[in-house]
Design a protein around this nucleic acid. Structure first.
Length: 154
DNA sequence: GCCAACGTTGGC
DNA sequence: GCCAACGTTGGC
């Protein structure tokens, strides 16, 4: 069982959007960064915990949690010429990009802002702090527990 | 909207 | 196989 932090722009896909999906399950697609792709493809397992992070917005913050319900499979959008995520170099025989399915789990009583995370000495080793621009990143069990506590998760 | 941090691409 | 150009990400 591993823990992750997934970033999403709330204007594109927010935690509430995930909750609104049928069965509270949504596809985490559109990842087009190689470091993030490699984590998604090689390391993210069914049952893993996900901190849901809102990026590129007024108050970047961890806003809740989700759970991985399906491990990596080829992102269908890469084969769709109509999609903005279309990749002409990808083929079903040789897919380049992957996605997972996640299930909404909880919304924090209080979002934990990036600013607050950066100021907390217990969180200074988070990838979020050390390497800013990575949209899928590993989180330790201690970081997971602390973030949930700070967010007032039950 | 600027630009810094990464990784990939491709000319030579 | 070097390295400049390019694409993506995302805080500010």
């Amino acid at each position: 069982m591993n823990y992750w932090l997934f970033k999403s722009e709330p204007d594109e896909y927010s935690l509430d959007d995930l909750r609104s999906e049928p069965g509270h399950i949504g596809r985490w697609d559109g990842i087009r960064n190689y470091q993030a792709r490699n984590f998604l493809r090689d390391r993210v397992q069914q049952g893993d915990g996900v901190l849901f992070y809102h990026s590129a917005c007024k108050v970047p913050a961890v806003v809740g949690t989700a759970r991985v319900v399906r491990a990596a499979y080829p992102d269908p959008a890469q084969f769709d010429p109509e999609s903005k995520y279309f990749d002409p170099k990808a083929s079903p025989e040789n897919p380049r990009w992957f996605c997972v399915d996640i299930e909404w789990q909880s919304a924090f009583a209080r979002p934990v802002a990036l600013k607050e995370i950066k100021q907390n000495p217990a969180l200074e080793e988070m990838v979020l702090v050390k390497q800013g621009r990575l949209s899928i990143q590993p989180v330790t069990a201690d970081e997971w527990s602390l973030l949930r506590r700070l967010g007032g998760a039950s």
